[in-house]
């Protein structure tokens, strides 16, 4: 395991080490000490510690050895259609539990972790409803997802919900320093420096082009931004920030443009072409700023 990436190497092993999710950690620690656990639903943006927390809980409950027998982890990399829910999950849930090992609480139930549950079909989720209740004496479910709205209501209402907050800059800094100290000296800085964000000057340039009367300038600016490989969604975000701070435009104009930016973003999520979407939005912005729309 010498060549483990840091995200894995420094993944917290116990729930207490999870950064920045105080309320969640506190509640879960209480549940741990009492040895009882409700069904859980973790949701929040990527990279906030949802999977880490779930793995840490089962580890602390059962210890590394018993984990294998007591925990079933299924994620989107496993086939999870309705067939699997009916067979695999139900069978595992129905099994009775064996003896615990010394040194860990080992409460008398098994845990099924369904990671990335928002990618499960509605049918598969529906099939889980009754299973959850029937076997709740010997089985607990942990659902993990980014968007809580993609979990059907009947499942969500059976779980204790925990929201994981996005991490703030200082918390991340602290954690990075913590890792740097452990990794024997600097050296890691340059790796962490590489980030994919668009420089604000890029969006400023596009906004300036949209203020000019010539369409050709807008087209050239968009062509260059795309050729430079900047993600169009990031550009839209920067454009939004630049527009909000812009003192020259009327509020009504800003509002109109922002609506169009949101439409362009939606189109991008649907898989549209970056160049055309950005050009369409910028073209509209130019018309609005010139008072033509």
């Amino acid at each position: 395991m010498a060549h483990q990436p840091w995200v894995e190497k420094y993944r917290p092993r116990s729930i207490g080490e999870v950064a920045h999710q105080e309320e969640v950690v506190q509640t879960l620690q209480h549940a741990l000490s009492s040895g009882n656990l409700p069904h859980l639903l973790f949701y929040g943006p990527p990279g906030t510690g949802k999977t880490t927390s779930a793995l840490a809980i089962v580890r602390q409950l059962f210890g590394p050895e018993l984990c294998k027998a007591r925990v079933l982890e299924l994620n989107a990399s496993d086939e999870r259609g309705i067939g699997v829910v009916r067979d695999k999950i139900k069978n595992f849930a129905a099994n009775s539990v064996g003896q615990g090992v010394a040194g860990y609480p080992c409460p008398p139930f098994k845990v099924i972790i369904l990671d990335e549950a928002d990618s499960m079909t509605g049918d598969a989720q529906n099939a889980l409803r009754r299973t959850m209740e029937t076997y709740s004496r010997v089985t607990r479910f942990v659902f993990i997802c980014n968007y809580v709205s993609r979990i059907i209501e009947p499942l969500a209402s059976r779980c204790a919900k925990f929201r994981f907050k996005p991490l703030q800059g200082d918390v991340i800094n602290e954690r990075i320093n913590h890792i740097c100290a452990g990794a024997a000296g600097g050296g890691c800085r340059h790796i962490l420096d590489v980030s994919g964000s668009v420089p604000p000057s890029a969006a400023q340039g596009l906004l300036a082009a949209a203020r000019s009367p010539q369409f050709a300038r807008v087209q050239a600016a968009v062509t260059d931004l795309i050729a430079d490989g900047y993600p169009a969604q990031e550009i839209l975000l920067q454009l939004q920030a630049a527009l909000l701070q812009d003192a020259g435009a009327a509020d009504s104009a800003k509002g109109k443009i922002l609506v169009r930016l949101s439409e362009a973003d939606k189109s991008l999520v649907d898989g549209s072409d970056e160049f055309l979407q950005l050009l369409g939005a910028a073209s509209y912005a130019q018309r609005v700023l010139a008072g033509q729309a």
Binding site: S267, S272, L279, G280, Y284
Partner: peptide, 28 residues
């Protein structure tokens, strides 16, 4: 869209660019 816009007045370029964005989204 790019070829059409090459030879147009600015007014038509605007509508062409915005239509292209809309139809491309629908296409997806």
């Amino acid at each position: 869209a790019v070829e059409l816009m090459r030879k147009l007045d600015d007014e038509l370029r605007h509508s062409t660019a915005e239509d292209a964005a809309m139809y491309e989204h629908r296409l997806q």
